Computed example of a mutant assay.
Amino acid sequence: MTAPTLETERLVLRPMRMEDWPDYLDLMRSDRSRYMGGPMPETAAWGLFCQDVAQWPLMQHGALMIEDRATGRCLGQVGINHGPLFPEHELGWFVYGHAEGKGFALEAARAMRDWARDTRGLPELVSYMDRDNHRSARLAVRLGAVLDPKAPRPAPEDLVYRHFGQ
């Protein structure tokens, strides 16, 4: 499966492109990536970037970049992760600093969640997150997810928020 393009009122969720790499790398090298295993060296960031792309043909899901419809500016990423590193299908997101606090992550995550349910037929998703990532936890709750303390997780200290077929 090739990565789709999804549209919302303000956003285009589109396949990743090589020109997305510099901003992605900057984020992964920065303290903003601390809730995603960072800051990390370029080699580790490149591995994640490639993993996000590779999941589409391998798993029929993956990451999409979040683009502002009005300006064409890339705002961050949203995706569905699974495979040997994730016990369940995970809905994940991040936005770059300039896009934070404007509702873009919520809008993009809602669209990706709905695509996963309606197009891929995934009845449930989870969001794994660092215990200190309070902003993402609030976003998961706004999406309708509930904390699931019994869920399997990739890291024992992670919180798991479960999204039931909203």
Rank of each mutant, 00 (worst) to 15 (best):
62 G>S: 03
117 R>Q: 14
26 D>I: 04
84 P>K: 14
38 G>I: 06
2 T>G: 05
98 H>K: 10
120 R>D: 04
21 W>R: 01
156 P>E: 12
72 G>F: 13
126 V>H: 10
24 Y>P: 09
129 M>C: 14
132 D>S: 12
104 F>G: 00
56 W>S: 06
153 R>E: 08
53 V>N: 03
88 E>Q: 15
160 V>L: 11
76 G>A: 06
138 R>Q: 14
111 A>R: 14
103 G>F: 12
51 Q>F: 07
95 V>Q: 05
110 R>Q: 10
154 P>S: 01
163 H>I: 09
97 G>L: 06
15 P>D: 05
139 L>Y: 08
160 V>N: 00
166 Q>P: 15
70 A>W: 06
131 R>V: 01
98 H>C: 10
123 P>T: 01
39 P>Y: 13
155 A>Y: 14
35 Y>M: 08
60 Q>E: 13
1 M>R: 07
9 E>L: 13
94 F>L: 08
115 W>Q: 10
46 W>Y: 14
95 V>H: 04
63 A>G: 03
75 L>E: 01
34 R>L: 09
21 W>K: 03
77 Q>S: 12
105 A>T: 03
129 M>A: 01
10 R>A: 08
33 S>M: 02
93 W>F: 12
40 M>L: 11
54 A>Q: 11
2 T>M: 14
152 P>H: 09
71 T>C: 04
63 A>T: 11
155 A>P: 06
73 R>I: 11
11 L>V: 03
19 E>L: 10
20 D>Y: 07
144 G>L: 07
26 D>Y: 09
134 H>K: 15
102 K>Q: 15
22 P>W: 09
55 Q>L: 15
27 L>S: 01
106 L>R: 12
22 P>V: 02
105 A>W: 00
10 R>V: 07
6 L>W: 09
87 P>N: 04
162 R>T: 09
153 R>G: 05
12 V>Y: 02
162 R>E: 07
159 L>P: 06
54 A>Y: 11
150 K>M: 12
40 M>C: 11
66 I>S: 02
32 R>C: 10
45 A>R: 00
153 R>Q: 13
140 A>V: 01
100 E>Y: 10
100 E>Q: 15
65 M>R: 03
19 E>M: 08
41 P>F: 07
131 R>D: 12
149 P>V: 08
28 M>I: 05
118 D>I: 03
46 W>F: 13
127 S>V: 05
50 C>N: 04
89 H>T: 02
11 L>P: 08
74 C>G: 05
113 R>W: 04
15 P>T: 07
119 T>E: 15
78 V>N: 00
154 P>L: 00
84 P>H: 15
4 P>V: 10
104 F>W: 14
105 A>P: 03
31 D>V: 08
104 F>Q: 00
23 D>N: 15
54 A>R: 14
58 L>Y: 10
24 Y>V: 03
101 G>Y: 02
6 L>F: 10
93 W>L: 07
28 M>V: 01
29 R>F: 13
140 A>P: 02
42 E>S: 03
157 E>C: 13
134 H>F: 12
148 D>Q: 03
89 H>A: 14
153 R>W: 11
145 A>W: 12
137 A>F: 05
34 R>M: 11
72 G>N: 06
11 L>Q: 03
152 P>C: 03
